[in-house]
Design a protein around this nucleic acid. Structure first.
Lengths: 145, 145
DNA sequence: TCGAATTACATAGGTTTCCTATGTATTCTG
DNA sequence: CAGAATACATAGGAAACCTATGTAATTCGA
């Protein structure tokens, strides 16, 4: 991983990632909310602070995101029976449906655009996700893996 | 490109791209400005509207970005001699230095985090960039390629 | 050649997403 | 049981977007 290209590739990764995010933002209502729905789907019910840690954002940011999602009826919040300080956020049925809908939209968007570039393969898409996942995973967490 | 996984992969691509963008945003002062510097480096002097098209953002957004970069001394703007309506935005020496500095920071950030995941290769990084580039390229443009 | 479309950019106004700092309530701990 | 730590909320503010619209310059057709 010390090829001279890495410099340029890293820069390109950042630039095109930002471009993708903006592309999605124009097509979706709640770009930030999706990430939360996705995390809840993956991990099950979590508290606000745990969600913030999982999404690598600040706790107040997650508080705001959860509030918006609750307003939309996509998550609900209940007191944590084991700790009265905290709460547990979980998907509602509507939230699950919304997550499915968004994933379909994302899939269509990505698939359509990839289809215009026949050179790209599913393997490369998988590699892209793996790389992004690796880069965005806190080194201190995944050390054991 | 019609594997059942594509759905999930596309969603993951979006989620992790957003996470990377936020990661970079926390480490950099002018996350949006970098893209402009990079475009100018790649294409040479351009007008605001051409820059906006290249970056796939709205013209007012680019007007704002250019104004911020000019305040920082990283670009300068001169009237377009061939068209008095428009202007030409170009990198200054300070802008070139800043671009180099940022690329180094990005490279270090990406490289360090990838290093924690020995399974990932430079080829995968290149594939990730290729996929992101393909997805973020307007299908109507790249049709000839 | 003169007025109408077009084009380049600026401005106005507003939204979303995110951050730091700080406050309040609850739970651990010595 | 008091103090430290923890979970979440609130306050205040900034960056980066967007759409709609205005102004000046250019192009083009009658």
């Amino acid at each position: 991983m010390t090829t001279p290209h890495v410099d340029q590739l890293s820069s390109d990764l950042a630039i095109h990632a930002a471009r993708l995010v903006r592309l999605i933002r124009r097509n979706l209502e709640q770009p930030a909310g999706i990430r939360v729905l996705s995390l809840l789907d993956e991990h099950g019910a979590l508290g606000v602070t745990a969600l913030a840690a999982a999404d690598q954002c600040s706790q107040p940011t997650m508080t705001g995101a959860v509030a918006r999602l609750r307003d939309l009826g996509w998550v609900d919040t209940r007191p944590n029976p084991a700790d009265a300080r905290g709460s547990l956020v979980d998907l509602t049925e509507a939230g699950r449906r919304e997550l499915a809908r968004i994933r379909e939209i994302n899939a269509r968007l990505v698939a359509e655009r990839l289809a215009a570039h026949p050179d790209r393969t599913v393997e490369e898409l998988a590699a892209a996700v793996a790389v992004l996942r690796a880069v965005t995973t806190d080194p201190s967490e995944g050390a054991s893996q």
